[in-house]
Structures are given as structure tokens and as C-alpha cells.
Design a binder for these strands. Structure first.
Lengths: 245, 245
DNA sequence: GCAAAAGTGTTGGAAATACACCCATGT
DNA sequence: ACATGGGTGTATTTCCAACACTTTTGC
């Protein structure tokens, strides 16, 4: 169906589609995936080289136009899979970015979705456009307004991991408390007291002792725990946190 | 420009535009404004009667398609003004809703924006489509997926007023602590201890004593305070809130 | 036995909670 | 004088932050 192709990404070249959108005065809708990973005690993000001439040496997020008949979140999962081959990951919507001039080729409103994945446990199956992991700290310029989107998503992540157990998806199923703490320290970019950190997590009662220990470490091995999602789901969310601003 | 009209709301009838979008396989983008107000100790929301036949007796949020050359937030402010005549209000983006089948007439992705206004201090200047305030508690069915959008926005509001001084825009510039507490109690749907509530707010140091008192109350008049936005802006935001989930 | 990280308790201060009486005003 | 909500203080508890030594393992 040719009319569908005007807004679908399909097989057509994205530049052609954008040109078409622009000439017909149509607003495009895209999804950009911000995929965070954690490795070597550093927070990283997946980026590709931009398709567009204008940004040909700039890095960009994993994005594409959405199709006519897919939900926004379906589009996000599709795009993630098309770009990386990844499946079975969380995706959460963070924000819509809709400035009129954010895209040079056409008017495109984009919705940012965030995902956290374990770099070791998810092999990238597609490596087009130089897809690879970038340390968060060493990213400077990016294509479009993607630097801004990334910043918003990073701030969202910093807040979100403190009130939601998102972070566990960045770790192996069984992890040591040191790994968990490294994760929080890296994402929040702060140092935490080891004893208080343990106390906090144990008191939440959501860590399950696996009776296993780290191996191949050049020091005393730590116990391995896993996160009890079931118990977490059952907990009732409180609506009163205490006013603080 | 006729191509612009295919996506702009402009003067054309919205039903015509939707039909056109659908027949051309184009995805529309709209903004829906969720306008909360506070009156008689109750949280209310502004709704209109839906334009569409299918939902002709259902209430709906204040929405419209966005124009080609306006930012998303500009569109939100425009739509709010077109529907109500209101200006000078906060608007915050809450979430995009993009299920493929959420709109019966065409594929439309919508971005919800929230606003809080003081019912007494903002006169509605336009009353088309039976625009008026509805008590949050007495809303049952709504058009489209607007009930769901409203629920998400309400939950967003409940969380947001605890970490951000949003709520003050629902009150007069000068307000008593009782009014402030009523607001929090109504929105969160809980009872709070009066003394602890005061202690909390005073300790934040953001309330300014106006040296004025309530009038025309059939009991001891309360002091009136105003919120010191300037001082609030200067405060540095903390990135560590304490893990809790 | 040395290096490296794991594991563990206590204490002081701050903040949250629970709770009851007197005060100022309008009627 | 009474009804109504305004205004205040204290004791208790809970939570958070600061802090140092012993243990286990690999080399």
C-alpha cells in the first residue's frame, strides 16, 4: 500500500520518506530508544552513526518512524530489535520531544523509550551503522537533539532507579552486593557507604540469598543474591512519600 | 496552504481532517490538556463534550491536532487557550498515548499535558462544547481512552505535588495553611496531622508570612502566606533521595 | 603473609509521628 | 457563652549517617 509507505519506515530509504513527509506537510512520528548498559563499572549507552548527511559523523540514538498500525510501544520494541537484534528487554516511555525544528529534514515528533540491558547477557546481533556501546561520560556532541534526549533519559534513570528496581536488569540474575552498589554509584555518580547500603537493601527484604558465591575473584568471594520480583510485585505502593521540595 | 491543512486543525472541521488522515494513511498527532482545578475542597477537572458522533454523550479532555509549525508545548498552550480562553498557566507534559486503536476515526497519537489552575482566579472565557468543571471523584465513563489518560495524569499529579510545589498554582496567591492542607488531603485522598503538616512546611522555609489574615470566616482567622518561588528556584536539587521501593 | 574486598554493629542526630490544650473570632 | 477552626510543644520512635575492625580468599 503506497499510502502506508509514506509514514512507514518499511524497506524504503528513510531519507526518501522524510523528503516525502516534508513536501506533503505531514508530521512524522518516530521512536528513539535509549539503551543503557552497565559494564566495567561504567554506565554505557548504545549509539549508531546517523543516516543523514548533515550529521554523518555524529552519533545518534536508535530511532525510526513508527508504522501505521503499531502501538507506540510495539514500535519501540520493533526498532530496538531491528537495530540490535535484542529482545526480552524492558522498555519504558520517558518523554515526547516535539520542537518544530528538532529535525532538519522534516517535522518529526519523537517519543523516547528507555531500556536497560545487561551487556554480557545480551549479544548484539546486528551491528549496522557502527552500533556500539559508548561510555556515558565520554559523549559530547550528537546528531539532532539527541544529546538533550539522552540527558533527559539519564536524569530519568537516576531518579527512577531510586524508586523502582529497574537497575537489576543491568546485572546478571545472580549478583553480589558489591556489583549492585557499583551500579548505583555509577549511575548516580556518588559514593555510598557500604554498610548502610547493605542494611538498606536487606531491610527491604527483596533480596534472596542463593547460597552461592562469586568465583574467580582474587579476594574473598561475596555471596550471590537474586532479586525477588514476585515479592516486589505484591508489595503495595504507598501514595504518601512525604512532601519534600 | 492546502497540504498544511491536512494535519492542522485550523478552521476545518476536525471530522473532515480525521477522515482525510485516515484515507491517506497518515498518523495524526494531538495534544490533550488535563486541566485540574481545586474548589470547595475538591479536585476537579475541565472536560468538554466530545465532537464525535460515536462519543456524543461522553466527556472528553481538551484536545486537538497539532499544527505543522508549532512545538508540542506551543500546541498545548494554544489548545488550552482556544478551548477555554485561559493563559498564563503552567503546562507540563505527562505522557504520550499511542495505541493503534485508541481513536476510532483515525490513527492518532496524543501527548497529554497537565495544568493546574485556580478556579476562582481564572475565568473561563469560552464555554463551547459544554466546557465545565467535573469533580474527579464523580467521573465514570469518558470518550476515547480519556479515562485512562486522566487516571495516569491524576497519579502523576499525586506524585508530583509531593516533590514539586505545583500545588500552589491551585490556590490564591495568599492562602492559609488550612487551604494548603485541604489541597494536599484532597489530591492525595488521605488525612494529615495538622501540626506535623505545618511543621513540615515551615521547616522548608518557603512560605512567606504576609502579615494578613483571613476575613469573613466564622471562626478565628488564619494567617495568610505566600509561596516564595524565588527562594525555591535557588535551592539546589538533590540527586540522592534514598532508595525505596 | 600479604593484598583485596567481604562481612558486620553501634551510636548520635535528624526527621517523622502521635497526641491535647488554649486562643481568637463570629454568632 | 458557645461553636468553629487556628495556633502551639513535647515525648517517642524511626530512619539515616558516620565510622573501624575482623574474616576469607587468591597469590
Amino acid at each position: 500500500m503506497s499510502s502506508e509507505a509514506t509514514i512507514a519506515s518499511g524497506k524504503k530509504n528513510i531519507k526518501t520518506i522524510l523528503k516525502q513527509l516534508e513536501s506533503e506537510g505531514i508530521i512524522g512520528i518516530s521512536v528513539d530508544c535509549v539503551i543503557f548498559g552497565f559494564d566495567e563499572n561504567e554506565l554505557k549507552v548504545l549509539l549508531i552513526k546517523s543516516d543523514l548527511e548533515k550529521f554523518k559523523n555524529k552519533w545518534s540514538l536508535l530511532g525510526d518512524l513508527i508504522n501505521k498500525n503499531e502501538d507506540l510501544r510495539e514500535a519501540a520494541y520493533r526498532i530496538l530489535e531491528e537495530r540490535t537484534g535484542l529482545r526480552d528487554v524492558y522498555l519504558e516511555q520517558v518523554k515526547a520531544f516535539g520542537e518544530a525544528m528538532r529535525h532538519p529534514a522534516a517535522r518529526v515528533v519523537t517519543i523516547a523509550y528507555c531500556s536497560l540491558i545487561n551487556i554480557q547477557h545480551h549479544q548484539l546481533k546486528i551491528l549496522d551503522n557502527e552500533l556500539h556501546w559508548h561510555k556515558i561520560k565520554s559523549i559530547d556532541e550528537m546528531a539532532f537533539d539527541h544529546k538533550k534526549i539522552l540527558t533527559v533519559c539519564y536524569e530519568w534513570l537516576q531518579k527512577r532507579i531510586q524508586e523502582h528496581p529497574l537497575g537489576f536488569s543491568l546485572l546478571p540474575g545472580k549478583f553480589s552486593l558489591r556489583e549492585l552498589q557499583n551500579l548505583y554509584e555509577a549511575i548516580l555518580n556518588i559514593k555510598l557507604d557500604r554498610r548502610n547500603f547493605r542494611k538498606k537493601f536487606f531491610s527491604m527484604g527483596l533480596l534472596e540469598d542463593t547460597q552461592e558465591y562469586e568465583t574467580d575473584v582474587p579476594h574473598r568471594p561475596g555471596k550471590l543474591y537474586k532479586f525477588n520480583y514476585e515479592k516486589y510485585q505484591k508489595k503495595e505502593r504507598k501514595k504518601w512519600f512525604g512532601i519534600d521540595f
